Every structure is written in structure tokens, then in C-alpha cells.
Amino acid sequence: MPPLRMLFNFAVMAVIAYVLLAGVLFFFQSRLIYYPDYGRHIAITPVDAGLAYEPVEISTVDGETLHGWFVPAPAATGTVLFFHGNAGNISHRMEYVSMFHRLHYNTFIFDYRGYGDSTGAPSEPGTYRDAQAAWEYLTKKRNTQPDRIVLFGESLGGAVAAWLAVRERPALLVLASVFTSIPDMGAKLYPFLPVRLLSRFEYNTLESLRSVTSPVFVAHSPSDEIVPFTQGQALYEAAPHPKQFLELQGGHNNGFIFMRKEWADALDEFIRMNLR
């Protein structure tokens, strides 16, 4: 085969492979973002950590049923509304629940649609509806005052929490290992593809923060192997005052564990300073 012909065939194959890869990225984005089947079943409950709790079921405006736990703390000074990341379920966040209990904060933690024992399948609009349903459960069913609620989001949960913080008036917003947006993350992971054109998801935490009026606490690790440290810094820069940045240690999924006491002390001080 002549060299030019071989080169032409190679170029055609490369273009086809590129288009196929772009197509996979476009049509299967949800599978790249959500991992509800990673530890799908509830592994443990707060009782296994020595904590009393109330199982909760809440309904969303579009008919899904969300499963969660309300974990009361003795002499509680506030309530944490917890938004977990894109993998696993509420039973994989017991370290957080135990920490907040020790610090005397109630915790309401729930699974998004399609996660754990919640019904449905995850989507970006769906997670926002889930967040609104969780907020209404605390403020209407439990009569919790908004200025006693702390929104806490880890990773993807931070984008959901920031979205809610724009629409409601929580006492403060906490972002742990959170990205600026899905297109920003996609551009980092697939720099050779036009991700910003292909993305069907936003989860634009950075944009939300520009409209948040509550105090903001941002925690991120320079060793985060999934979400770049620079994205955590960008979120902090965009946040309103008062705000605080805590530099963690360790990777994306273990930064909290590697800095447990420092994390708890710094977070507790910031919350107590800003609970109105």
C-alpha cells in the first residue's frame, strides 16, 4: 500500500476513533458522574457507631422517595444538612456523622434518588429537587430555623449544597474537596476532547458561590488526586466574607481522615462563630 494511502487510512481511523470517544462521553455522561451502585446497600446504621437515630423518608415534588437518617446530638446548637459525594451512600459517611455528634450538632443525612434505599435514578435536576426536599423536611417538618442549619457538601455534594445555599438562607455553607464545575473537571480529565461543548451537566459550584450570601468554609488538599487543589482555591476566592480556607492532607477520599482533629477543631470554631 502506498505511504500516502496508509497515512490517509490512519487519519480516517483516528477521526472515527475520536468521534466515537466523543460520542461515548456525550451519551454516557451520567455513568461517568454518578456511582450509585458502588456499595449500593446500606452497610451500617448509626446504631453501629453507638448513635441513636430516626429513619426518615421524604417525598420530592416529582414523586421520588428519599431515605435518610436524622441523628440528634445532646444539647445541639445547630443542625448539619449533609450532601454526600457521587459514590456510595449514607452508610459510608459514618465518620462525619460521629464527628458532628461529638461537636453537638444534629445531622440530617440522606441519599439522593437512585442511591441507597432511595427510589429513582440520579440526574442533575433531580439532585436539586432532592436538596430542596431535604431542606423543607428540616424547616417544615422539624421546624428547624434556617439560621441554625449548616449545609455541608463533599465533592459533588458541594455543588448541590451551593445550589441550595443560593435559594435559601442557611447559617453557613461548608465545601469539602469540591470542584468548580463538571465542565472544568471534564476538561481536566479529557483535555483532548471539546468537553465544554459536549457536557450535559453543569453542577457549577463556582457560579453558585458568586450568589451565596452565607459564610463559607472551604477545605481541600493539595494531594487531592481527583479534584485539583486549584479548584478549591478558586471556590474560596469566589466565596463571600466571612470565609475560611483549610488545607487538608491526603487524597480526595481520605483527606478528612488524615486531618481529623485539625479539621474538627477548625470547622467547629467557624460554625460557632457564624451561627446566628
Rank of each mutant, 00 (worst) to 15 (best):
L4H: 05
M6K: 14
N9M: 14
F10C: 09
F10I: 12
V12C: 14
A17Q: 04
A17E: 02
Y18K: 04
L20N: 00
L21N: 02
L21P: 00
G23R: 10
Q29E: 13
R31M: 10
R31S: 11
L32R: 05
I33R: 07
I33W: 04
Y35A: 14
R40A: 15
I44L: 13
P46H: 06
P46T: 05
P46I: 13
G50K: 11
A52G: 14
Y53D: 12
V56N: 05
T60L: 01
G63N: 10
H67D: 13
H67E: 08
A73N: 11
G78K: 14
V80S: 08
F82E: 04
F83S: 00
N89S: 09
N89E: 09
E95P: 12
M99K: 12
H101T: 12
H104N: 15
H104V: 04
Y105G: 04
Y105H: 14
N106A: 08
F108R: 11
F108L: 13
T119A: 09
P122V: 00
E124S: 07
E124M: 01
P125K: 05
G126Y: 00
Y128P: 03
Q132L: 07
A133D: 04
A133E: 03
E136W: 04
L138V: 11
L138Q: 11
T139D: 07
K140C: 05
K141V: 13
Q145K: 15
D147S: 15
V150K: 06
F152P: 01
E154M: 08
E154F: 03
G158K: 05
G158T: 03
A159Y: 09
W163H: 09
L164K: 02
F179W: 08
F179A: 03
S181A: 06
P183K: 04
M185K: 05
A187R: 13
Y190N: 05
F192A: 13
P194W: 07
L197W: 08
F201L: 12
N204Y: 02
L206W: 07
E207T: 04
S208D: 06
V212N: 01
S214F: 03
D224R: 09
I226W: 06
P228I: 04
Q233V: 11
L235M: 06
Y236M: 02
A239I: 01
P240G: 05
H241Y: 10
K243P: 06
K243H: 06
F245P: 01
F245Q: 01
L246I: 07
L248Q: 08
H252I: 05
R260F: 10
R260Q: 15
K261M: 06
W263L: 15
W263V: 02
D265Q: 15
A266I: 00
L267Q: 03
I271A: 05
I271K: 07
I271Q: 12
R272F: 07
